[in-house]
Amino acid sequence: MTADFQSALHPAGPQSDQIALVWWILLAVSTAVMVGVPGMLAAAIRRRRVSNGQSSERRLARAVGLAVGITSVVLAGLFAASLAVGKRINSYRDPNGLKIAVTGNQWWWEVRYRTTSPNEGFTTANEIHLPVGRGAHIELRSNDVIHSFWVPNLHGKMDAIPGRVNTVWLKADRPGEFRGQCAEFCGLQHAHMALWVVVEPPDAFEHWRRGQIEPSHEPAPGSDEERGREAFLSLPCGLCHAVRGTAAFGQVAPDLTHLATRRAVAAGALPNTRGHLGGWIVDSQRIKPGNRMPPMAVPAASLPVLLTYLESLK
């Protein structure tokens, strides 16, 4: 029925696995209580009345005391279990881990892969790739309001708060594509602020990483792609978006250098297909009302070549 790619009940990493364990323990205990208390209530209501004054009051006091005692012990046990799991989750580190800076914006995620060598870092948006089995240290920031970074299959959420840097470790044990979504109300398009986490085998990840470092695809002279690039650069696109290797170096909207490799556009609102992309450029306010991309008056003749160019940004 419901999908499994954005679910706390289908863990794909050690942290979400531990949290799911806590959940099943809590659920088991709760189920017992949910049977017990209404059961006691039913028994209290239906029982045959025989009253024998003082001694029955004393028995009741003992029963209440016992019930409170059991409750306290169970609660103490749950507290200990929760603390132990919390500690295990928090102590996870990978000295060999990736470093990724994720920044929340109204209403998309900027993703920067950071390395010690400057020419190996790169920026993308709304998509994170992770190699199976290798940890990633995520630094969370916000450029505007509070957002919350949440990929339930991998870990619980952590807020991105302006003026602060929060960190969280992610690790995935199995390949797969997992969806994450902003979990702190952040304004008009809070509902459409998703990102994908693609977990792949190490060599596939390395291939992707190498590709992302490269500047953008250079169109062949005279091709539709080149005409599309001219259209792109003559429209206001480059004031907000960057395409590395061109004169477009805007920093306030998603980096489009390798747009065509991404699964979705508009922070998960649409699948990345030619049709959706065209619709988005022409009338983004209808798809995601209030988003920061102004309506574009793209000349009818330019749109097809513009799309061809954007589709070539692999």
């Binding site: 209580v33 208390v37 749950l78 929760s82 989750i89 919350s148 619980g156 959420k157």
Partner: peptide
């Protein structure tokens, strides 16, 4: 009692990071 139990659940930080919001 049902609400109280889910309250105890979300008192647990690890679980709350999933359930929160």
């Amino acid at each position: 009692v049902a609400g109280g139990l889910t309250g105890v659940m979300i008192a647990s930080v690890p679980f709350d990071t999933q359930a929160h919001d």
